[in-house]
Design a binder for these strands. Structure first.
Length: 272
DNA sequence: CGAATTTGACCGGCGC
DNA sequence: GCGCCGGTCAAATTCG
């Protein structure tokens, strides 16, 4: 006679939930790989079409040129963010977040803020907290076309290790090149080719779903998302998407916002 | 109370 | 020389 039937049921339910979560983790790891791969393809397409956009870019506003420059300056995607001289990154912030905080692993001290001529949103000036030992400075300002996108410009090179957390996915675009891509989500940077053994990563995609009916079935939900992402982000789809954008005068800004949005969506992931 | 942030003042470069 | 503009300084204020 089992005197603890309710506890036994709870344990079984928890074990079942754990199994579901583990499977969810595995699937979402695959999703992450797919999205990263396709992001790489997208960047290559941007590079190929960059020359065609240079003439048009000369007629854009400075803010537009910033976004264009950021995305056209790299042949390979570089999710890893070695903050070197004159590098820039795009970060999508929450729409209701009015702060100009870009979490890049380093600690910064704000020393000024100005409203610039070409952008209604203020530009914030930061200095590395290790100054004067570390000479790095950065400027952060919202994209003129999409105020949910933060544009951070770095000046100088850190001479010390990061001392903060990587809370946001950074879409990097600095002047140097690298043949390997890497990503940084909720932990140290790691190359795409060798995913980190621990901790495991799960994207809480249900958070961005407008309907709540899937919340109670995370595994089913993730499978659907897997299929949807693989379909919508296929190479052919990206090629067609980029081709359509090249005929759009707002190509650079729209693409910058789209890429930043995609990367930021990934950054909403959480550890289980 | 010390550290961090805010914000108006100031400075230097640049174009006219 | 003058005005505009981006970048920095530093006193005042806020925060932990």
């Amino acid at each position: 006679m089992d005197v603890f039937p309710s506890y036994r049921e709870k344990v079984e339910a928890l074990q079942s939930e754990l199994e579901h979560r583990q499977k969810e983790n595995e699937r979402l790891r695959i999703v992450l790989g797919i999205m990263t791969r396709n992001f790489s393809i997208l960047q290559d397409k941007i590079q190929e079409t960059g020359e065609h956009q240079q003439k048009a870019a000369s007629n854009l506003t400075e803010g537009d040129r910033d976004c264009h420059e950021i995305l056209a300056s790299n042949k390979r995607p570089r999710s890893e963010v070695p903050i070197t001289t004159a590098s820039r990154i795009l970060v999508r912030s929450h729409s209701n977040d009015k702060s100009l905080i870009v979490k890049d692993g380093y600690q910064w001290r704000k020393y000024g803020q100005k409203v610039t001529k070409d952008n209604p949103s203020p530009r914030a000036y930061f200095r590395c907290s290790m100054a004067p030992n570390c000479p790095v400075k950065k400027k952060v300002q919202r994209c003129v076309e999409d105020d949910s996108v933060l544009v951070a410009s770095y000046d100088g090179e850190h001479n010390h290790e990061p001392n903060g957390s990587h809370g946001q996915y950074l879409c990097s675009a600095n002047s140097s090149s690298s043949s390997k891509s890497s990503i940084s989500i909720h932990g140290p940077k790691f190359p795409i080719e060798t995913p980190p053994p621990q901790p495991s990563i799960a994207l809480d995609l249900t958070l961005s779903s407008p309907d709540n009916q899937h919340r109670e079935k995370p595994c089913q939900r993730s499978m659907e998302v897997c299929e949807k992402i693989d379909k919508n982000y296929s190479t052919k789809y990206i090629e067609e998407y980029v081709a359509s954008l090249t005929t759009d005068p707002s190509f650079s800004v729209a693409l910058a916002a789209a890429v930043a949005r995609s990367m930021s969506d990934l950054s909403t992931s959480r550890l289980l």
